[in-house]
Every structure is written in C-alpha cells, then in structure tokens.
Deep mutational scan, measured.
Amino acid sequence: MQNSHSGVNQLGGVFVNGRPLPDSTRQKIVELAHSGARPCDISRILQVSNGCVSKILGRYYETGSIRPRAIGGSKPRVATPEVVSKIAQYKRECPSIFAWEIRDRLLSEGVCTNDNIPSVSSINRVLRNLASEKQQMGADGMYDKLRMLNGQTGSWGTRPGWYPGTSVPGQPTQDGCQQQEGGGENTNSISSNGEDSDEAQMRLQLKRKLQRNRTSFTQEQIEALEKEFERTHYPDVFARERLAAKIDLPEARIQVWFSNRRAKWRREEKLRNQRRQASNTPSHIPISSSFSTSVYQPIPQPTTPVSSFTSGSMLGRTDTALTNTYSALPPMPSFTMANNLPMQPPVPSQTSSYSCMLPTSPSVNGRSYDTYTPPHMQTHMNSQPMGTSGTTSTGLISPGVSVPVQVPGSEPDMSQYWPRLQ
C-alpha cells in the first residue's frame, strides 16, 4: 500500500499530492522566468500547473527564495509595531506611495530583511487598517496617535501638521516623493554593498519588468496595427511575429492590442446598429396606417339613396333571421326581375335548405315592403301603392349592394327569390 497518492495534472505532468515540487523543477521555473518566458509558457514547457508556477515565482520575487514554506503551523507575524509605524510614516510623507514602493524602502533602510519582509498584500492590509482606524477615531485622537508614531512633539492640530517642515499644504506631496526618490538612490547604494547585491538587483529588475506600465504606442505603430486590423481581426502567430519585427513591439503586446481592438470594434458596431435601427424607425405612426385595407374592405359607393341603408337594423327591421341572411350572402350585381318571367313554384328541397333563413311567422307573405323604405322617402312611396304591378321595390342582398326588384302586385311571395340566388 502506497503512503502517498501520485497523479497526472491537466498538462500531463506527474505530481505527488500534498508534497511540494522538487527543487530542480523550481530552479528551472526561475531560470525560464529570467530568460523572459511568460508564466503560461513555463507552465506548458515544464508541465506544471499555472497556479503552481505563479505561486513559486511570486514567492521568489518577494523573498528571493525558491524553497517551499513549512507545511503546517502558523507563519510568524511580520507586521510588527515597528514595521507598522514605518509604513504609516512613509504614507504620511508621500500619500500616493504604492505598497511595493513601501516594501522596497523597508528593505533599503534595513527595517526588514528578506526573511521577515511583509508581502505587498500585508502592507496593503496595514494601510487599510490605518485608514479604518482613522475613520473610527476622532480628529484629536487621530492626531495624537500619528504624533506618537512619528515621534515628534510638534502641533498636529492642523492639517499642514501632517507634513512636517512644510508650510504650503500643496507642497508636502512633492517633497515626500522627492525624499522617497532619494531613498531609492540609497536603495541602490545599500544593496550594492550587501553580499547578495547582484541577486537582489536582478530580482528587482525582473520584478519591475513584470510590473509594467501601460504600453505607449507611437503613431507609426498605431498606423501599422490599424492597417493589419483592417486586413483581418484575428491575425495568426506568423502575422503577429512579422508585425512585431516590423514595428519593434513584443508579440504578446500585439496580441493584447488586437484583443482590445476587437472589443472596441464590437462596441462601435453595436452603436452603429442602434443608430441604423433608430433612423429606419419613423418618429410617429401615421393615422391612416393604423387601418389596414386588408382588414377593412372598402364599401362601394351607393348608386341610389335607398342603398345607403345596408342592414335591417338601420331600417328599423327587427327580424334577425333576414338580417343574418342578407349579411351572409355574397355580393351580387344589380339585376331586375321582369313581370314576364315565369313564376316557378319553389322546389321543396330548395325551400327546406333555406328554411332556417325565413321567419317562422306566416304573415311574411302579407307584409308590405314599406318597412324598408327610409324616412325621407315615405311620402313618395305612399303616393304609389304597392298593389300595382309596376311598383318597384329595392331588396338588399349584402352591405353596400342594392338590387332593384320588380315585385308582382298580386302576391309578394318571398319564396320566388331563392331559386334565382343559387
């Protein structure tokens, strides 16, 4: 039975679970980093996980050691009161100082060594604690504590007292930064006198190289990059290397530039699409467009005044059976039934097929058609009795279509119309 579990990581490298990497692998990681390889490249070359490479390099940059820390136990506290007071002093002298600059000053002034120097995250935590204590304490208590930490007896009751030896409130920041720059020169002199001055200088240079600022491109470089971006948004590694040799930039910087440029292009394309949609959409909808001609068919113009009344309900007709019959029939052209047409008796099958359309009241044959006459024609229609054979009435077949029909004066039988409509 094995005491430890061995495995293979996602890159194909072998590791022992819970145990640190061998010293030979750690040394190779540092050597590759000094030669300029990126952590992701080191991870692929040595088949070590990216997190492990970053952790080893980060500890090497901070402490200069590649040895693993002790497994188990607690780390001794490195942010001692003396170190905290120095950090507060540096922050007062130059409020814009960075944590890694404070760390360098602690090393250069001999406050800490490589073994007990606090990390950048520890210094940031100390600065946050100082800021929170400043908010919790009152103004007087804060000034007393700062005077105690600074070891001075001057008056701290006013704002300019934060910067000793100065009279203009805006000047101390520059003086403090100048003092810090002077301390940086002392850093070089002190570290050069040490035993491991060369190694420390190499480590600091490598650290500065990794902690780079934003790349500033010249106009020629920007023009070359934009020209390549117009050709393709995704250049391959050969195109990037050719462009890197042409404009004297690292291939990694060119790759990052193209990634950022593609993101910018997507944002601009989104804005262009929004403007295009806004320009195509009308600002207001016309009133006429809300009524579609496919839904509402136009009603033909009436030929006679009587045809303006298109349904039985508008003429005072309360018989719903006839109203439904007229509205359900398709529109037909106007025609006239003459008196000489043969009077065919209704076929029983045809009569039964339209039995649902006729009223059940037996008085329908005896009703006159003056009910369908509009009010303004009552006088004219009353002067001509319906009993004469020459009287013409208008029957409504569908809305908007008038059918003048000659009705025999002897017997106005409704059943004569249905064979004609089939």
Rank of each mutant, 00 (worst) to 15 (best):
L46C: 08
L149K: 14
G72T: 06
V83N: 08
T80R: 07
S6V: 15
E62P: 03
Y61I: 13
L106M: 08
D140I: 12
A88L: 10
V83C: 08
S74T: 04
F15S: 01
L46N: 01
C52N: 00
Q27L: 14
D144E: 13
D140S: 11
C40W: 01
C112G: 04
N124D: 04
G18A: 02
Q89N: 13
P39I: 10
G36E: 03
V8Y: 07
L46W: 08
L127I: 13
T25M: 07
I87K: 02
L57Q: 00
I117M: 08
G7I: 07
E93G: 11
T80N: 05
K91M: 00
I56L: 08
T25E: 06
S43W: 01
Y60D: 00
G51K: 03
C94K: 10
V111K: 07
D140L: 10
R147L: 14
S43V: 04
L21M: 02
V83S: 04
L21H: 05
V83E: 01
G18R: 02
L32D: 03
R128E: 09
I102Q: 06
V53G: 03
C40A: 09
T25I: 07
V111L: 08
V111F: 06
V126S: 07
L11E: 04
T113H: 14
V120N: 14
S35L: 14
S96P: 08
N150G: 09
V14P: 08
P76F: 03
S74D: 01
N124C: 03
R38D: 01
K55M: 03
D115I: 13
S6T: 14
A131I: 10
R92L: 09
R77D: 05
V8M: 10
Q135E: 14
M137L: 13
N17V: 15
N114K: 13
V14N: 10
D104T: 09
G7K: 15
Q136L: 10
G64V: 01
P68K: 02
G73W: 01
L127A: 09
L11F: 08
D41R: 06
K91C: 00
Q135G: 13
I45K: 13
A99Y: 03
R77M: 03
L106A: 01
C40M: 07
S108C: 09
N124R: 11
R38C: 05
Y90C: 13
Q10T: 06
N150S: 11
G51S: 15
D140A: 11
P22R: 06
S121R: 04
S121P: 07
K75R: 10
L21Q: 04
P118N: 01
D23R: 07
G36R: 07
P22L: 05
P81F: 06
Y143M: 13
Q2I: 13
G72E: 03
C112M: 02
N129F: 04
D144Q: 09
Q2W: 10
S74G: 09
M142F: 14
R147F: 12
H34W: 10
Q89V: 09
G64H: 06
R125S: 05
L46E: 01
F15M: 02
G138E: 12
C112A: 06
N124G: 06
R147T: 13
D140F: 09
S49T: 15
C52P: 01
A88V: 10
A99D: 02
D104P: 00
S49M: 01
M148T: 15
A131L: 11
Y143L: 11
V53S: 03
N17S: 15
E101L: 08
E62C: 06
S6Q: 14
A70C: 08
S35D: 12
K28V: 05
G13T: 02
A33H: 15
I29V: 05
V78G: 00
